[in-house]
Every structure is written in C-alpha cells, then in structure tokens.
C-alpha cells in the first residue's frame, strides 16, 4: 500500500534487528518476557516467555480470555510494570533495569495512554487534560498539531468544559487527544470502548484507525471485543501467558473463530 510505504519512508527507522528476527521497523519488542505474581505455591505466571514485535505505524490488538495475560503484557510494554525476567524494549530503549524516574520520563515523552475508565483529571478542563503530558514535560504544545487532533476528534467546541460536563464518548475522545498530543512512539489503549455505547465505541475505533492511517501512529489495544479488534491491522492472541497465534487483517468473524479455538 502506497500510503504505508510513504509513511515508512517518512519516519526514521528505529533500531532494526534482534538476532534472528528479521524486520524493518519495530516500535516495541519483548523477548522471552515473563511476569510472575506472588511467591512459592501462590505464584501466578501471568506471562510465560512471550517474544513479540510490535510493528511501527500499525494498529495491533491484543486479545485473549480473562487471565490470559493481555493486560500484564500491555503494562510491561508501556513501562507501567516491571518484568520478572526477559526483555522489553520500546522505541529502541531497553526498559528492564530503568529506574522509576527514567520510566516516568519515558512514559511522559514516548507513550500515550487511553484507559477504559476514561481517567481524566476532574478538576482540569478538556484542554488542560489534553495538554497535561506536555505540561508535565515542560513543553509547549505544537498549536497546529493540537488544533488538528482537536478538530479531527470533534472536540473544538468542548475544550473549556470539565470532564463532568462531557459525555462518555467525548471524555474518551479527550483521552485519545491526550494520548496523541505528544506524538508518542506507541499509544496503549486498554479496553477503550469498554464503557461506551456501541455507536460511540465505533466512532472512537474509527479515530484510532485513522490516526494510524493518517499520521502513522503506532497503537496497541487490549480488548476482548472481536468487533473492536477488527479495526486493527493485526491481532495477537494470548492464552495462559503465552502467545497463541496471530491474525493479519482481522474481521470480527475470523477473530471470533480464533477465540473459540482458544476456548474463550
């Protein structure tokens, strides 16, 4: 696809190869990642040797039954949680071994988040919520870029409102704008449509899709909804903390089939 090639050329290539895994552009990567909660008999292996590349400029959905480790995988990738063993890298930076301070800075500058529960600060206006990560970094917002995402997300008339005065769909669009405003390496979305009605949900997924298409944004979305997953370029399936397959150019039906095979 020509637009993808153009984007590939426009974006600087991140560090390219890990031994034996040939790929052109990787936004994030895990190698033999394991995460164990608890100790001794009560130990739970949430992730058990996951090796995965997240392609840059693509929309990746992570799916799996409850307890499959999909959320834990996202937390590790986003620098929210540390790995028990194995490696995680984001945009060429090795995350394992970074201090809390460095991880915080990395999240601030190179990661965007969209949560299920919207998670806006109630005391700030929509605009203040959107520019929060930039302010935390002490950077000035790029006014052209800000205007563009605000317009695209249909928030131009809502910037001075506080979260309590916005609908759920609007709140989640504010969260998306906040995630995009720093032009992060990766946007992580955790069940972003979980609290939305289906119309707002589809609208939001459309926005996420077009941010990948139009701006070359890398997005990783955790979801259990096959319809939501069908907006992605690729679906990664997880079961019992291990990779259980992947689907390129998914449709709701193909995702549903795959999940059924996993026994979800």
């Amino acid at each position: 696809m020509s637009s993808e090639q153009r984007l590939d050329a426009a974006r600087p290539a991140p560090s390219s190869t890990v031994a034996g895994v040939p790929t052109a552009r990787v936004a994030a990567r895990t190698v033999d990642l394991a995460k164990v909660y608890g100790r001794g008999e009560a130990a739970v292996r949430a992730l058990d040797g996951v090796t995965l590349d997240i392609h840059a400029g693509r929309f990746t959905a992570v799916m799996g039954p409850s307890g499959s480790g999909k959320s834990t995988l996202m937390h590790c990738l986003a620098g929210l949680d540390d790995a028990t063993s194995g490696q995680v890298s984001l945009g060429g930076t090795e995350l394992t071994g970074l201090s809390d301070r460095e991880l915080t800075k990395l999240r601030r500058d190179r990661v965007g988040f969209v949560f299920q529960a919207f998670n806006l600060l109630p005391q700030l206006t929509a605009q203040e919520n959107i520019t929060l990560p930039l302010e935390l970094a002490g950077r000035q917002p790029d006014s052209g870029w800000l205007a563009e995402i605000v317009t695209v997300l249909g928030l131009a008339q809502r910037l001075r409102h506080r979260p309590a005065e916005l609908s759920g769909g609007q709140q989640q669009r504010v969260a998306v704008a906040r995630a995009l405003v720093t032009r992060p390496d990766v946007v992580f979305a955790d069940e972003p449509t979980g609290n939305l009605d289906s119309r707002s949900g589809n609208e939001l997924l459309g926005f996420l899709r077009s941010s990948v298409q139009d701006y070359g944004q890398t997005i990783v979305m955790v979801t259990h909804d096959p319809v939501a997953a069908s907006y992605a370029d690729r679906v990664v399936l997880l079961a019992d903390g291990q990779l259980a397959g992947e689907i390129y150019r998914p449709t709701p039906d193909s995702v549903l089939d795959a999940l059924k095979r996993l026994g979800a």
Binding site: L80, D100, R101, T104, K105, R107, R108, D109, F113, F115, N119, L121, L132, P133, L136, A137, R178
Partner: peptide
C-alpha cells in the same frame, strides 16, 4: 493517572 502520564513521584 498522573504517574502514568509521566508525573514524577
């Protein structure tokens, strides 16, 4: 949330 968005401790 603030910590996730990059506010230091």
């Amino acid at each position: 949330l603030l910590r996730a968005l990059g506010l230091q401790r």
